[in-house]
Simulated assay, not measured.
Amino acid sequence: MIRRGSTLDRALLLKFMQRTYQDLFPNEDFSHLEQTVKQYFSSDTPLWWVEEEGEQGSRGAGEQGNNKKFLSSTPHPHPCIACLWVGNAIDQVQGNRHAHIFILYVVPEHRRRGIGTALMRYVENWAIQRGDRQIGLQVFQSNKPALNLYNQLGYQTQSLWMVKFLSAEK
């Protein structure tokens, strides 16, 4: 079940973001993500959740019991198993606004079941309806499952984001 999030979901979004990056970089501290959410999360940057239905989803909000693999949001009765957060970007070549995916995360126990694909199709339809002509995203080269998903859905590399790490020492 997909539901639209709201700015009341700020804390849950932060948990999902931290879990996303901890999965990829387990030895890093991601406390700075709170500032990212504070700066960019608003009613203009839509958020969607996939909620678990059935036996596990019948527990009350916030009740994790012995099963802590699901994250739940206080105002909603079903634990969240995936999220998609979208912002806005400007195509620097043609100047058109388009959707930019900040985060797509599926709880590991629910991966390879079509949830990520369904969320991507959902956001593509949403973007088409609002008049966007493209969707952008950033993915780490080491995240092979995500790269495979995006390639299968027809996403192509348009540019490369390059970094050079600088030493603070002089």
Rank of each mutant, 00 (worst) to 15 (best):
F41C: 01
Q64S: 11
W85F: 06
T157I: 15
P108G: 08
L8K: 13
K15I: 01
H100N: 13
F30E: 08
L13R: 01
F25W: 07
R121W: 11
V123K: 02
R19F: 00
L71M: 12
W48L: 03
W85Q: 02
T157P: 07
K170T: 14
S73N: 14
L8A: 14
L104V: 12
T7G: 00
L166E: 08
R113Y: 08
L166K: 11
Q35I: 09
F25T: 09
N67D: 14
A99N: 05
E169C: 11
P145V: 09
G136H: 07
E34M: 03
D29L: 06
L153Y: 10
G62N: 07
G5N: 03
R130T: 07
I135V: 12
S43W: 02
W126I: 02
S142Q: 15
L119I: 03
W126M: 14
I90P: 05
R10H: 12
V37K: 03
V139M: 04
G5V: 00
G60C: 08
N88C: 10
G60A: 13
E34T: 06
P75L: 10
H78P: 01
N27E: 15
L104R: 07
P75Y: 06
Q158V: 15
Q35S: 14
G57M: 04
G116N: 03
G5F: 00
D132Q: 02
G131P: 02
F25A: 07
V163Y: 13
L8Y: 09
V163G: 10
V107Y: 00
G116R: 01
Q64E: 11
S73T: 07
E52T: 11
R3E: 06
A99M: 06
T36V: 11
Y155I: 09
W49K: 03
G116H: 02
S167A: 10
R133G: 08
V86S: 02
T157Q: 15
T36G: 03
E169M: 10
R10F: 04
M120D: 04
